[in-house]
């Protein structure tokens, strides 16, 4: 356990010094700060657009950070040969991998917190204190984004045990897009009554296996306060459980590959 925590800590220390990540983060924060200027687009729905845009910036930036951060985790260690000194210590490979993953998630949490706080400040200034109670609801969206990004990081960690960072970047990005697409796609698909049962059946199976990132996009209701959703808290708990299951799947898969891997 000690080893995992130590590895996670150094991973955070490294991540928050990675220039690429800081640049991406800076761009994200800049977008958040200029977001209020975009409300000219649609006067009537300025609040909607501002909220949607702000949350979108956080989500997109976080996704890019999650992927860029994670795809280099293992390859960098191998390239710099730091992994040799670590693996020659009484550290199991799975501990190394889990430590790296947890470090990435912690770094992600730090960066996402920064963006969320920026968003909070922007909204506070925009609304000048009024309607702040509605703002409370806003923060659960980045929270679910964080769960989503942790899952994405697990996907990237898994791939990083056997593909190069560039390939991994597109692979993980692809999984993220497909995972975001698949829910709505399957939604239409399942409503189409003309499809043969076998096609439908296999779609159902794929749908159950692919990590469905769209599940975590709970911003609709915050952006459109009209929607009434009951039992939201339960849903969030289910989401966390869902993410944990998938993280386990990808980490175990990663460990199985990494354990056999020659570094």
């Amino acid at each position: 356990m000690n080893a995992i925590v130590s590895i996670a800590k150094t991973t955070v220390g490294e991540a928050i010094r990675r220039r690429v990540l800081l640049v991406i983060l800076l761009i994200g924060v800049l977008f958040l700060v200029v977001a209020p200027g975009l409300s000219v687009l649609t006067a009537r729905q300025s609040y909607t657009v501002l909220t949607s845009f702000t949350l979108g910036v956080i989500q997109l930036t976080s996704a890019v950070i999650a992927i860029v951060l994670t795809v280099y985790l293992i390859p960098n260690e191998i390239e710099r040969r730091t992994i040799y000194t670590i693996l020659s210590k009484p550290v199991q490979r799975w501990q190394f991998l889990v430590g790296k993953f947890l470090g990435a998630v912690a770094a992600l949490a730090l960066m996402m917190t920064l963006m969320t706080v920026t968003m909070g400040l922007v909204f506070m200034i925009m609304r000048q204190g009024s309607g702040m109670e509605a703002l409370g609801g806003l923060f659960r969206v980045p929270l679910m984004f964080f769960v989503q990004m942790s899952l994405l990081a697990a996907v990237a960690v898994f791939f990083s045990t056997f593909v190069s960072p560039i390939v991994n970047f597109f692979l993980s990005g692809g999984v993220y897009l497909v995972g975001t697409f698949f829910n709505p796609l399957f939604d239409t698909f399942s409503k189409n009554e003309n499809l043969p049962a076998i096609v439908k059946g296999s779609a159902t199976i794929i749908h159950m296996i692919v990590p469905n990132f769209a599940n975590f996009n709970v911003q609709n209701q915050v952006i459109n306060p009209g929607a009434v959703i009951t039992n939201e808290a339960t849903y969030y708990l289910q989401l966390v459980a869902y993410a944990v299951f998938y993280v386990l799947v990808f980490l175990i898969g990663g460990i199985l590959v990494f354990d056999r891997r020659e570094v």
């Binding site: 040969r81 730091t82 040799y84 000194t85 020659s88 210590k89």
Partner: peptide
Amino acid sequence: HRKLSYLPEKPYYYEH
């Protein structure tokens, strides 16, 4: 591994 240690050729460490 508890009882051995290893100094690789040209070691690199976390530079920060």
